[in-house]
Structures are given as structure tokens and as C-alpha cells.
């Protein structure tokens, strides 16, 4: 009798726990599913009351609309150029810097990176805007790439400091004793060992650059908008056409969502290590 009631209680406990997990996960799931549902329905169903949940039949018209009416491909290309450039530049600068800071144990440099992370992104925009105007760079993608370095460089440096600090120093010391220069010790010993860290830094820098809105909103002209800016402009001009808007929003965030699903472990490792988030 005792075991049976114990088993029952455990089953009830498991059921309750399962429901709790479902409650935790459902808000995330619901919003993305609703986004998908809106993007696959025609305008009549999207504004129906009570709401239509399952698209019947699903239509790809909204996606066709997005590609046909706007310069969506141009903006997608802009986003790709900006995010890749800002990420690669940040890696080239930030991986050696993270190594140097870790080796020197420079708390001051690390604190500076932390303060850069604390400062609101918007506050960099006034000086950068004035600077780019003065340099007559407005109207190209270059100012946007440079502004995105404000996000990507601190992320890469921050993640790399903690990874290089976690490496055992003996291997590099052995290389130095064998006559390697410190650059060689970095390039051929430390960097290969820190490859998982570089992966984490790359993914996080790319995602936060791709997601950034405010820099491009201020710095971009008509031809140089990135995807978040372009999709926000769709709302301003097409308040009621929910289908194309949802389709565009989903296309903008899809690369990031797929990257998260694929690299879930690295992202979790990187974020728990430092709590980094874009400016």
C-alpha cells in the first residue's frame, strides 16, 4: 500500500512538474508560432474575429510580397555585409587583445570593457554621427560597420579573456623555453586551444550585430538600411498589413533562431561565462 501511494504521489509530482515546464516554455513558443501563423494567412484571416489560428490553406503570398515589393534582398545583403565585417574585424582585433589582457592580468583593461558594455548604445551615436558627417562617410555601409564595432569588440574581448585565463600556461611556457616568440606561442599554441572560445565569441558577436537596430536606424540612408531598420519601416507605412509584416519579421530573425538552435551549447556557455549582451 505504501509503495503504491508513494508511486502515485511521484506520478502526480511529475505531472505537476511537466505542467510547470510547459508553462515556462509556452510563452516563447506561442509568440513564434503566432508569428508563423500570421505570415502564412491572407489578410482576411489575419484580421478575423475570433482569430484564426491554423492557416487553412496556408499561403506563401506574404513571403512573395516581401520579396517583390521592397528592396528586401538589398537590405538582407547590407545586413550580411555589416554583421560579417563587424564580426571578423572584432575577431582580428579582439582575440589577440583578450590574450594580452589575460596574460597581463590587467584588471583595469577588463573593467574598461565592462563599462563599455554598461553604456547605452544610443549614447555613442551622437559623437559617431557627427564624426561620420565630418568625414563625409554617410551614405555608405562603412559607418554602420564601424559603429557595430562598439558591440562586437567588447563581446569578443570579454569572452576571450575568460577563455585564455582558463588555459593552462605550461604549454606556452614550454614553447617559449624551446625558443618560440610570444607571437608564435600565441598563434600556434594558445589560439588552437582556445578555438571553442573563438566559436562562442563569433556566434555571440554575429547575433548581437545582426539584431542591432539603433545604429543603422540613425546612420543608414535609403540604400544602406539593414534588415531590422527595413522591417521597422514596413510597420510605419503599412500599419494594417499584418501578413507581409510578419513574413518579413520572421525572415529577419530566422537566421538568428536557426543559429541558436544549432549552437545552443556554445551560446549557453558564452552567456553564463560573462553575461555578455550587445550594447
Amino acid at each position: 500500500m505504501r509503495t503504491r501511494s508513494g508511486r502515485l504521489r511521484r506520478a502526480l509530482g511529475n505531472l505537476g512538474f511537466g505542467l510547470a515546464v510547459l508553462t515556462l516554455v509556452s510563452p516563447a513558443l506561442m509568440v513564434f508560432l503566432w508569428m508563423l501563423s500570421l505570415s502564412l494567412k491572407n489578410e482576411l484571416d489575419n484580421t478575423a474575429w475570433p482569430p484564426v489560428f491554423i492557416p487553412d490553406p496556408p499561403t506563401l503570398d506574404n513571403y512573395r510580397d516581401v520579396f517583390a515589393r521592397n528592396d528586401f534582398l538589398l537590405y538582407a545583403w547590407n545586413s550580411v555585409v555589416v554583421s560579417f565585417s563587424a564580426t571578423f574585424a572584432a575577431l582580428a582585433l579582439g582575440v589577440p587583445a583578450g590574450y594580452g589582457i589575460a596574460k597581463m592580468r590587467s584588471t583595469r583593461a577588463a573593467a574598461l570593457i565592462l563599462i563599455a558594455r554598461i553604456t547605452p548604445g544610443l549614447s555613442y551615436l551622437i559623437p559617431l554621427f557627427l564624426m561620420f558627417q565630418w568625414l563625409e562617410l554617410t551614405g555608405t555601409l562603412l559607418p554602420i560597420v564601424i559603429a557595430h564595432l562598439v558591440i562586437t569588440v567588447p563581446i569578443v574581448v570579454w569572452v576571450m579573456i575568460s577563455f585564455f585565463e582558463g588555459l593552462p600556461p605550461e604549454l606556452e611556457e614550454a614553447a617559449l623555453v624551446d625558443g618560440a616568440t610570444i607571437w608564435q606561442a600565441f598563434r600556434h599554441v594558445a589560439m588552437p586551444l582556445a578555438r571553442p572560445g573563438i566559436t562562442v565569441a563569433t556566434i555571440l558577436a554575429f547575433i548581437f550585430s545582426w539584431n542591432n537596430f539603433v545604429f543603422a536606424m540613425v546612420l543608414a540612408g535609403r540604400e544602406t538600411r539593414t534588415l531590422p531598420v527595413a522591417v521597422n519601416n514596413m510597420l510605419t507605412f503599412e500599419q494594417i498589413s499584418w501578413g507581409p509584416l510578419s513574413a518579413a519579421a520572421l525572415l529577419v530573425t530566422l537566421p538568428v533562431l536557426l543559429l541558436t538552435l544549432l549552437a545552443q551549447r556554445q551560446i549557453v556557455a558564452g552567456l553564463t561565462a560573462g553575461g555578455v549582451k550587445g550594447a
Binding site: V21, L24, V25, P27, A28, L29, V31, F32, W34, M35, L38, I207, W210, N211, F213, L227, P228, V229, V231, N232, L235, W242, L245, S246, A249, L250, V252, T253, V256, L257, L259, T260, L261, Q264, I267, V268
Partner: peptide, 25 residues
């Protein structure tokens, strides 16, 4: 693992895209 991934998706999603969906909701 799957539940945790779904749970962290909002944090990684593009804020503008998500904000537009909330606006419609």
C-alpha cells in the same frame, strides 16, 4: 535540452522583429 533551447529563443531573437509581433498582438 530542447525545452531549454526553446526557452532561450526570445533572448536571441531580433528585438525589432519580436516587437512588431507584440504590436500586432
Amino acid at each position: 535540452g530542447l525545452a531549454r533551447t526553446v526557452f532561450i529563443l526570445p533572448m536571441m531573437a531580433t528585438p525589432v522583429a519580436v516587437a512588431l509581433v507584440w504590436t500586432m498582438m
